[in-house]
């Protein structure tokens, strides 16, 4: 079975037929070609696939695409505008918050959702918010520093 979903991705409206068993991550990567969203595990464990759904950072690998009908979705591709990085992206770049880069889209979108409702998070709040995002490279210290730096850069 297929359903027609209409949703907004990075501010643009789309209408697509998706099969009932299609996961949001497969829809984004395969149907929409938005391969910035990563698959890091076999389901729900790592946070690499995190996208922002109606303001909430959620794993897209355990979300069914057709339940996102009417939703507004943000992926990593929608962050930089006209080649200008967001404060978070800039901070990850400058503070070595990214190494291999695989966890980075998920980290940035989780942190982006955090900063929107808590523009000045403590280190503990950052750790809590990023609790579902795994990184095998950085050891987290520089990721936390990047988020703090972005928060401070935001007046």
């Amino acid at each position: 079975m297929k359903q027609i979903i209409s949703l907004s991705i990075n501010g643009k409206q789309f209408e697509d037929a998706v099969s009932d068993n299609m996961l949001l991550i497969d829809y984004l990567r395969n149907t929409r070609g938005l391969t910035g969203t990563k698959t890091g595990c076999d389901g729900g464990e790592c946070g690499a696939c995190t996208v922002i759904i109606d303001g909430q950072a959620r794993p897209s690998c355990i979300t069914l695409a057709s339940t996102c009908h009417g939703a507004s979705i943000e992926t990593i591709e929608g962050q930089a505008r006209n080649g200008i990085l967001t404060p978070l992206q800039q901070a990850f770049h400058e503070n070595l918050g990214t190494q291999c880069g695989f966890c980075t889209p998920g980290m940035i979108l989780t942190a982006e959702a955090l900063l929107r409702h808590n523009p000045d998070p403590s280190e503990d709040e950052i750790k809590q918010a990023l609790g579902g995002n795994l990184c095998r490279c950085t050891g987290y210290v520089k990721i936390i520093k990047s988020v703090r730096t972005a928060a401070e850069a935001n007046p």
Binding site: G44, Q56, A57, P59, G131, G132
Partner: peptide, 9 residues
């Protein structure tokens, strides 16, 4: 329970 992203759903 789980992580903050899971808890939204």
């Amino acid at each position: 329970i789980a992580g903050p992203g899971h808890r939204f759903a």
